[in-house]
Every structure is written in structure tokens, then in C-alpha cells.
């Protein structure tokens, strides 16, 4: 039984394997590291054969870290909760503000419309460090530093432009005639927005929400400067594992595995909305 496999197919498969190895091997290695002690990780040469230990995870969940120089308090679970609160609230608010704004930019021509949209996008150009120092000053003045609200507000710089620009493109792709038809049927403007525009742009909204969630989740510098210990997300919290007794590689690996999990689950969940009928076949020609 000779199955015919062309040379091109073999090459493509090989290329795919190389790319997957390149991107997935580090994650796999981190996953293995999270079940090893620091000594096992640092031995030379490294080996993938070891007796797994759960001590990294128990340390993270119990909040007590035993090191050579004594025991240390860590607030990793608190940090994880902070990340979840900050990222999901930021995305939620960015969606509430950004989706109607995206619709307005897509459907209506108004004075300075393009300029406003571009200004919002330009928030993504500027390095955060540029605005950080004045922000700290302002936030201390108005009492917003070290609050969830203050951080969520600053996170809008990350989430809002993304949602606005991605969702706008999706709204522009919906034939206005579909909305006109719904209006002519006797439905109000608001109902048309919620029953036609939003459902049809749902793949775009899902993509934009997921992306901005990831960006917010991975943010480091805003949270580092503007939040104190009990408001810090995982990205900043992981700094605590660089201790006076050395870098706790095992703990860091376990923390990475745990902090990647929520984003991964969210991405898997959002996937079905992402691929959902981009070409729904509503209009012809």
C-alpha cells in the first residue's frame, strides 16, 4: 500500500514541526521545571528525568516559602486574584465604552471623527514610561494611586484602542442595508444596534476582548509603579521570587504555569466565537 506524499507536503510538515517546537518547547520546559526543586533545575547537564515534586505549588498556595535563609511570605494567590480583577474589569469597561464608540466611528461621518479615532490609537504608540511619572503625581494628588479603580483606568490605555480599532473594522464589514432593513421593519435604533450590529460583530468583539485581556494581563510597568503589594498582579508579584537566598526557579515556573492558565482557558473558550461565521452570507454582490 503505497501512499503518495509529495515532497512539498513533507517540507510543510517539517516546517510546521520546527515552528511548533520553537514556540512550544520553552512552555513545555517551564511546565517540567515547575515540578522540580531548584537543585534539580540547576544541575548540569539538565535532564528530563526526575522525581516530580509538588512543593513549588504547595508553597504558592500556602503562601509560605522555605528557603535556605529562612521562611518567606508570598502573596501569589492574592496577586493572581488581582490580575483577574484588574484584567476582566478593564476589558469589561473597555467593551462598554469601546463597542458603541467603534460603531459610531464605523457608521457616522462626523467632524474630527478620524482624528479622534487616531488619537485613541496613538495611545498605543507612546511608551508607557513616557506618561508614568506625571501619572504617579496626578494619581497621588487625586487619591487614585494604589486603587483598583486607578489601575483599571490606566489599563484603558491598553484595552480601549485595541477594542475600538478591531471592532470598528468588523462593524464596517456589516452591510448597512442589513441595519436599514431592520429599521424599516419597525425596530428602533437601539434595538437595531443590540439585535443586529452587536451579534454580527461578535467574532470581532470576542477577538478584541481576548487580545486586550491578554495585553492587560501581561502588563507590568503600570502595575509596578502605581500599585502597592496588595493590589499587584502576578506579573509584578513574581518579582518576590528573586530572593536574598537566590532566584527560586521552580517557584517561578509554577507561578508561570498558574498565571498562564486563566488566559489559556479564556482563549479556548473564545475560540468558537473567533471562527464563528465571518462569511455568514447575508448579502449578495
Amino acid at each position: 500500500m503505497a501512499s503518495k506524499i509529495s515532497g512539498g507536503a513533507v517540507l510543510r510538515a517539517a516546517a510546521r514541526i520546527i515552528v511548533l517546537l520553537f514556540f512550544l518547547f520553552p512552555i513545555f520546559w517551564v511546565f517540567l521545571m515547575s515540578f522540580q526543586t531548584n537543585q534539580q533545575i540547576l544541575r548540569i547537564p539538565p535532564s528530563i528525568f526526575f522525581t516530580p515534586t509538588l512543593e513549588n505549588y504547595t508553597a504558592l498556595f500556602s503562601g509560605r516559602l522555605q528557603t535556605a535563609s529562612g521562611s518567606l511570605d508570598i502573596a501569589f494567590i492574592k496577586n493572581l486574584l488581582n490580575s483577574i480583577i484588574l484584567s476582566s474589569c478593564s476589558v469589561l469597561i473597555a467593551l462598554i465604552l469601546g463597542v458603541p464608540a467603534a460603531y459610531a466611528f464605523a457608521r457616522f461621518k462626523f467632524r474630527l471623527g478620524e482624528n479622534i479615532a487616531f488619537t485613541l490609537l496613538s495611545f498605543r504608540f507612546a511608551p508607557p514610561l513616557l506618561v508614568l511619572v506625571p501619572l504617579v503625581a496626578y494619581f497621588q494628588m487625586i487619591g487614585l494611586s494604589d486603587t483598583y479603580i486607578g489601575l483599571i483606568w490606566v489599563y484603558q490605555l491598553i484595552c480601549l484602542p485595541l477594542i475600538l480599532w478591531i471592532v470598528r473594522g468588523y462593524f464596517e464589514d456589516i452591510s448597512p442595508d442589513i441595519e436599514h432593513a431592520y429599521r424599516v421593519d419597525g425596530h428602533s435604533w437601539a434595538k437595531t444596534f443590540f439585535k443586529i450590529a452587536i451579534p454580527l460583530a461578535r467574532p470581532g468583539i470576542a477577538a478584541a476582548a481576548l487580545l486586550s485581556f491578554i495585553f492587560a494581563w501581561n502588563n507590568f510597568v503600570f502595575a509596578l509603579i502605581l500599585a502597592s503589594a496588595d493590589k499587584q498582579p502576578v506579573t509584578v508579584g513574581a518579582l518576590a521570587f528573586v530572593t536574598s537566598a537566590g532566584i527560586q526557579y521552580g517557584i517561578i515556573a509554577a507561578a508561570i504555569v498558574l498565571s498562564v492558565t486563566p488566559t489559556l482557558l479564556l482563549a479556548l473558550y473564545a475560540q468558537r466565537y473567533l471562527v464563528e461565521g465571518l462569511s455568514l452570507g447575508a448579502v449578495k454582490g
Binding site: S175, V184, P199, A282, V283
Partner: peptide, 28 residues
């Protein structure tokens, strides 16, 4: 507004609601 004019329109590109069944389209 178009919703209050009592006008029926058949659009050239059909403009059906892609996320609804034919029944719901007609019933709209």
C-alpha cells in the same frame, strides 16, 4: 424615522439577517 413610515423595502442585496432563520427574518 424609517421604523414609523409603514414602508416595506426589498433590498437589491437582499439584506437578510444572517444570524436568524428565514422564519425570523420574515417575522421581523
Amino acid at each position: 424615522g424609517p421604523e414609523a413610515r409603514d414602508v416595506g423595502v426589498a433590498f437589491q442585496n437582499f439584506a437578510l439577517y444572517p444570524h436568524m432563520t428565514a422564519f425570523e427574518n420574515i417575522a421581523s
